[in-house]
Amino acid sequence: MEHIELFFKSIFIDNMVFATFLGMCSYLAVSKKVSTAVGLGAAVIFVLAVTVPLNWLLDQYILQEGALSWLGEDYAQYDLSFLSFIMFIATIATMVQLVEIIVEKFSPSLYNSLGIFLPLIAVNCAILGGSLFMQSREIPSLGLALTYGVGSGIGWFLAILAIAAIREKIRYSSVPPALRGLGITFIITGLMAIGFMSFGGMLTGGDEKKEEPKTEEAKVEVQKELNKEEDAKIVAENTNLNNN
């Protein structure tokens, strides 16, 4: 349940592009055609799914305050969290390189479709942002970190797919000349972000509704018990009367 909740939350509510504006540079630069957008989106999902859990492990066992305690008690007081930027970005850069080599070796066809995008991804803010948000939101387990990585990757994929489709269509409409290209893309993204804000009620709304029936149920139960007591009293009185 936790996993499903985090999964949908990271796709829709905390969408990388529309809620936190991460990965905007490549989002704007590579969204001219749907086919390239799909390639980059798939590569982002892939890299996020690898780097977020990996950085979670780094954060848990090396960087956090007291994380080094597995080395012995002498190391328990170290707090290396100031190194997290450099560690995260180094992991990401190496992982991207590694993923590129592995994919090239084992699946040349996938490499041909993702290959050119992989080096671009090392400097995509969405990837580092995923790891940094994972750290600042204190995601509790490795499984959840993986869910978060995949979920936010899919969210980014959806966003770039949508804008690329819109940009392919907008070529046929008459946009004011000064707005053509970049300007109109910004404004459309803004409107899409407003649309995505409506997903915000998805989880919180559910939570509120969940809480209300609980209190009502509790009230009903209390009242039921009260009623029972009253009934018992009445019964007792009646039996008393009958006895008399």
């Binding site: 000064a178 910004f186 803004g190 409107l191 972000a193």
Partner: peptide
């Protein structure tokens, strides 16, 4: 709200 940042930048570009 964050979407307005996009629209403001869009207007600056315009």
């Amino acid at each position: 709200l964050s979407p307005m940042a996009l629209i403001v930048v869009g207007i600056i570009i315009w």
